[in-house]
Write a protein that binds this DNA or RNA. Sequence first.
DNA 1: CGAATGATATACT
DNA 2: GTATATCATTCGA
Length: 191
Amino acid sequence: MIKLDTDFYSRGNVTEVARDLLGKVLCSRVGGHLTKAIIMETEAYAGVDDRASHAYGGRRTRRTEPMYGDGGTVYVYLCYGIHHLFNVVTSTLNDPQAVLVRAGSPVEGIDEMLRRRGKAAVDETLLSGPGSLAQALGIRTDLSGTSLLRDRVWIEDQGIGVAKDAVRVGPRIGVDYAGEDATLPYRFLIS
DNA sequence: CGAATGATATACT
DNA sequence: GTATATCATTCGA
């Protein structure tokens, strides 16, 4: 049970980090509740050259500021007015690369996840979809800009192995507006 | 399949 | 400062 550190996040290769995050355990301690989930699906957002990224072309606003932080910074933002999307900043200062966590598998604090999601029993939709995942773990925009090296949100390596042929790669979801960059194989998921 | 939803970015006054 | 188009989605038919 090892908390991932800066070396993991700051490798400077987003797609590699996105791939390696599969099988890791995303943990949060919010409102006194501990929740943990195995990461099942990720997407890489490759900085200023990626049209799907908020930081495309070096755009820099108050919302995207955390993306320009050091590796291991948390970037949470609101989409469609409702959904909180959880991202992990990879790479180093002023190199805005990030990994979006899209889906997970519940490990701990399941009762609390159910309560936050308004569900009575675990089903496959509990942690599927970036908005749902963030909601179940209690992740909201107030966590944006915090560090994964602290104790509110972090990621552990519990030694869960992911076979190479169990990883599926494909184009990212919901980024049609990004033109050619929408077809890049930046999406990773465990089948 | 289609509507809801509200913070944010951008272009104005 | 104010207005409006936009959006890395979800849920209910």
